[in-house]
Amino acid sequence: MGKKPVDSIVRAQAVALSDAGLNQVEISRQLHISRHCVQNAIKKYKETGQYNDFPRTGRPKKIPNRGIRHLKRLVKDDGRLSAAKITSDLNASLPKPVSTRTVRRYLRDLGYEYVVKIKKQWLSNKHRQQRVNWCTRYMHWTPEDWRKVIFSDESTFYVLKRKNQCKIWRLEKEKLLPECIQQTNTGDGGKVGIWGGISGFGATAARIYMENMDGKLYCDVLQHQLKHSMAQIPKTTKILFQQDLAPWHTSNIVKEKIAKLRLDVLDWAPKSPDLNPVEMLWSILDKKLASKPMYSKAALMDRLQEEWDNVDQDLCIKLVESMPERIRKCLKAKGGHFL
């Protein structure tokens, strides 16, 4: 490790004291610097007429500017998977090859992160256009308009497997403690389904079920959970019901049930779960379920019902009122995925 450089003002004082007739030892004692520093300051001033150090070139870059531009081009499209592959392609254009570790360091300096891909539904050009058309049609709706919509959805939860990655703080020696292990089992311990909705009036009643969702079961949900929840809303409010385009939602038996119940259904763009604010609740529920271990489907059903009953009603309203912002983001992304 190098020594701390002497300030240019101190060097100027050393030169001035030398011109005044003091020897190097006396100057060293008076300025509290080594005699060698005094000697170098006087010598540099005589040779260059300056007190400051010359700019240092420093260690040459392992990847020159041109190589960095090439590196940026390589980290695009399908070339993002492996630092080893990126290094191999980059070394073909460099006069001196670099290691994979060096390439990783440069990528981090450029702001890149090596992370898990975000899972999103595949969108064709047709899907994107349909999403844009839907957002354009409703972009002028206000939060007050969206409060009158009941957003609904189904989700599946597993006894042992969580939707979110579970991260904890632990010491290396604690990694095998029961509270530090995410237990798994064949079949993930069983699954349970839940139907629920939110609006500007809070959360609806939830339907928790162990069988697979189909048209018959969905009709029962509309007849009981949805109608019961709508009965709690003032009759003067004209309510719209939102559902996605899942096969059981568009079946003939469900269409007949909707007509019989006289539900006003909001049209919906295909493959648009990110536009549905109720999707946020599934992630929140999953985090709460992860706080306490479960070992049976019955326990999972009880916990789901408990957590749904404790959903913050103000949070539901805020999620519904976020629709204008969601629409703006979707239009900005030209119908593509957004966060």
Rank of each mutant, 00 (worst) to 15 (best):
H140G: 01
P95R: 05
T136L: 15
L245R: 13
D309E: 14
C166Y: 12
G190I: 04
S28Q: 10
K288S: 09
D244S: 05
G2N: 12
R108Y: 14
W141C: 07
A14K: 08
F201S: 10
L22S: 08
L22I: 00
G215W: 11
H32N: 14
R66G: 08
Q129G: 10
L107Q: 13
D7P: 02
L261H: 04
K72Y: 00
E26K: 12
G200F: 07
R59L: 02
N65L: 15
S34W: 08
K287Q: 10
E113F: 10
A83Y: 12
A16G: 00
D312P: 03
K191M: 11
F157C: 01
N65T: 14
K126W: 04
D267W: 03
K4C: 14
K62F: 02
W141D: 01
Y158I: 00
E306Q: 13
H127S: 13
I42H: 01
R147I: 00
Y112E: 11
Q129M: 13
R105Y: 06
V15L: 05
Y45Q: 02
Q24N: 02
P247Y: 08
L71S: 07
A290C: 03
E154V: 11
P95M: 02
I150Q: 00
Q223S: 05
I9F: 14
K163L: 13
M301D: 04
R326P: 06
Q13R: 10
I86S: 10
F157I: 00
R303C: 01
H140Y: 08
S18V: 03
R35H: 07
E26F: 02
S272G: 05
V265K: 07
E256P: 02
L160W: 01
D89H: 13
Y112Q: 11
L240C: 05
K238Y: 06
N65W: 11
F157S: 00
G335F: 12
Y51I: 12
K43N: 08
W308V: 08
G67W: 07
D153Y: 04
L304G: 00
E144A: 12
R35N: 10
C180Y: 09
Y218F: 15
L74E: 09
L123T: 04
F201H: 15
V149L: 05
A12H: 09
L176P: 00
D220N: 11
E256G: 02
I42D: 03
R303V: 00
H228S: 10
Y295G: 00
E144M: 06
I284E: 13
L71R: 07
V265E: 06
